[in-house]
């Protein structure tokens, strides 16, 4: 049992894509589709240096949200929708190999990653990656994906401290 409600954990464990929203220096919200990984405490997302503007934005403003909305990319027995708000940090201390610490989580969800990794020489900059660590603060759950209804709201800030 992790820090998030079980229904959201099931979504996170299955999701091949989630939408990460960051705040740019002008206050504009910018959303990026990314694969989310979860270890029961933090949500991890990795970003290639090629698409590193979001990393700059997170360093300047750690407030982010992650939404799980697409039934095509989240194959679960009972589909719900969820949004997780939280504070993110960027680990770019070793862009070449540091991100490989989340590889076991990634491999579990997307085994084909090993085949892509084998072609690292063909896409060297794509595999230079930072890890975004999202500490959940609040979560919203829309059962059965019904966003026309009010969501369940989970305050998590205390739980994760």
């Amino acid at each position: 049992m992790g820090v998030l409600p079980e229904q959201i954990e099931l979504l996170l464990d299955a999701a091949l894509v989630a939408e990460l929203t960051v705040v740019d220096p002008s206050g504009r919200l910018v959303t990026h589709p990314l694969i989310p990984l979860y270890d029961g405490e933090l949500v991890y997302l990795t970003s290639s240096v090629l698409f590193s503007r979001k990393l700059e934005h997170i360093k300047a403003n750690p407030k982010v949200s992650l939404s799980l909305t697409d039934p095509e990319a989240i194959k679960v027995e009972r589909f719900h929708r969820a949004t997780i708000q939280g504070d993110a940090t960027v680990d770019d201390s070793d862009l070449h190999a540091g991100w490989e610490r989340v590889l076991p989580l990634w491999r579990k969800k997307e085994p084909v990653i090993d085949a892509f990794l084998g072609k690292r020489v063909a896409l060297p900059l794509f595999f230079e990656r930072a890890v975004i660590e999202l500490r959940p603060r609040r979560a919203f759950l829309w059962e059965d994906g019904r966003t026309d209804r009010a969501p369940q709201v989970f305050e998590l800030a205390e739980a994760v401290r």
Partner: peptide, 9 residues
């Protein structure tokens, strides 16, 4: 509080 909030529709 300045956090992004997303909702599908």
């Amino acid at each position: 509080e300045g956090y992004p909030l997303s909702v599908a529709t």
